[in-house]
Deep mutational scan, measured.
Amino acid sequence: HNLTITQGKLFFHYNPKLCLSEIHKMEEVSGTKGRQERNDIALKTNGDQASCENELLKFSYIRTSFDKILLRWEPYWPPDFRDLLGFMLFYKEAPYQNVTEFDGQDACGSNSWTVVDIDPPLRSNDPKSQNHPGWLMRGLKPWTQYAIFVKTLVTFSDERRTYGAKSDIIYVQTDATNPSVPLDPISVSNSSSQIILKWKPPSDPNGNITHYLVFWERQAEDSELFELDYCLKGLKLPSRTWSPPFESEDSQKHNQSEYEDSAGECCSCPKTDSQILKELEESSFRKTFEDYLHNVVFVPRKTSSGTGAEDPRPSRKRRSLGDVGNVTVAVPTVAAFPNTSSTSVPTSPEEHRPFEKVVNKESLVISGLRHFTGYRIELQACNQDTPEERCSVAAYVSARTMPEAKADDIVGPVTHEIFENNVVHLMWQEPKEPNGLIVLYEVSYRRYGDEELHLCVSRKHFALERGCRLRGLSPGNYSVRIRATSLAGNGSWTEPTYFYVTDYLDVPSNIA
């Protein structure tokens, strides 16, 4: 807008934040220059609390790290170098490059900038070799853009010569660093050979998330399962459950009422301010606690030095998902009996873990797994792929695949051998790939016309006998059925096997 004052003059007093240069501009645009008398524009009460600059400061050096910015700028000295009290560095987070010096300023003089007072450097006698002032900004957020400017702080001049310097606002972004852990990993099994893994992005990506790394490792069953005799009275049979499938998407929606109208769909109840505040506090606490764990609990591995020492970490090797089922080394339970199943799973520490690289999504279907087997899954978020990966501390989750139908069934015939004193040795093959492992066998036998009897055969007993022995049988026709019990439950009964026990007292003698 054009402003013209045809008559009258300007009068400025007691404006401590208004620089004289701005008042002189007002004289020019209003056409009143030359009308004012000496005392109409006070030299001592206008701009006496402001830094009124008329020179431009330029930054000469900028260096960044993930949490620091090192700045240096060209030296500046007023005509009387004693008038320079120091520099004021202003900075704040700036997602967009549209910041002005006066953003967030209120009537009390406060604003949204963080201000650092910096002492002037030592003055050199040689004007050509003056030290460049600077400042190291610490405690910054990774991968965050900051708006920065600097200006001088000078003393009051009796001659009211307006001098000083100020830089333009520059924008500097800190470097990326390792992201925080992925949030809320959930693993479920939808079949006997697959596990579905879902997660949420890290709360602090500290860069642009480029991919996720998912490692999985087959877990050995508890050692007590191999040692305890679950045929003993009072000892509860062990059981394991597989990871249940995901709930429906509708039930997972946030901010939804727990109660549904019987007449149909209901609208979600909005969260109160107290609920939102509580969630923010919980989120802040979780982030602080995660940072504490990362800094205190997890110790970084030592990389190899120039002395030739090897990095103890196993090298990563990509495998196809079809090879995942046989990740671990199978060892027989008892070496003397080769027909026992290889369900003991000690994992070799030198073995390469299978892994998958996930790009542009937060889910993965891990296939080719062994049925009813526990897996430990390790999830890392990465925001750099080359020249070397920059990934987060791992988040861990466990899951067990679903049982395989008929995996616990005894394959092959049940054979028998009759000894003296009416002892019958029953023999059968253990299931080759049971659900988890076989903890015991149930032997059901009966003599024709009598009630059915049951015998429990422990895992250890089966390994020693290759089956079991029935003792003290009365003469007669017998039928026997056997079924295995694994961590997933009972298998199917075998087809009945028949044998006849004679009275050993009636056996004919070869003595003449």
Rank of each mutant, 00 (worst) to 15 (best):
P205V: 02
P205F: 14
I209N: 05
T210G: 08
T210S: 15
H211G: 09
V214S: 03
D222L: 09
L225F: 02
E227V: 09
D229Y: 14
D229C: 04
C231F: 03
G234F: 14
G234K: 06
L235N: 06
W242K: 04
W242S: 14
S243F: 08
P244Q: 12
P245Q: 14
E247Y: 13
E249T: 09
D250N: 14
S251L: 12
N255E: 07
N255G: 07
Q256R: 06
S257A: 14
C266I: 14
C267F: 13
K271I: 11
T272G: 08
D273S: 12
L277F: 09
E279V: 04
E279K: 02
E282C: 11
R286G: 02
H294Y: 04
N295M: 15
P300C: 08
R301N: 03
G306H: 14
E310L: 14
S315Y: 09
R318M: 05
S320P: 06
G322F: 02
N326S: 14
V327Y: 05
T328Y: 15
V329D: 15
V329L: 09
T333Q: 15
P338V: 09
T340V: 06
S341C: 09
T343D: 04
V345K: 07
V345C: 09
S348R: 10
P349Q: 03
E351Q: 03
E351V: 08
H352Y: 05
R353F: 04
K361M: 10
S363H: 04
S363L: 10
V365L: 14
G368V: 06
L369I: 02
H371Q: 11
F372M: 10
T373G: 08
G374T: 12
Y375A: 01
I377F: 06
Q384W: 15
D385H: 12
D385F: 08
T386H: 08
E389W: 09
R390Q: 08
A395L: 08
A395Q: 14
A407M: 05
D409W: 06
G412F: 10
I418L: 10
F419E: 00
N421M: 14
N422R: 13
V423L: 02
Q429Y: 13
E430S: 15
K432L: 13
P434H: 05
G436T: 09
L440D: 05
L440A: 10
Y441T: 02
S444A: 06
E451F: 14
L453S: 06
V457N: 02
S458D: 04
F462W: 14
A463P: 04
L464S: 07
R466H: 12
R471G: 08
P475K: 08
G476N: 00
G476V: 01
Y478I: 01
Y478N: 00
R481K: 14
I482S: 01
I482P: 00
R483P: 00
L487Y: 12
G489L: 05
N490R: 14
W493E: 02
Y498T: 03
Y500K: 12
V501R: 02
T502V: 12
Y504V: 11
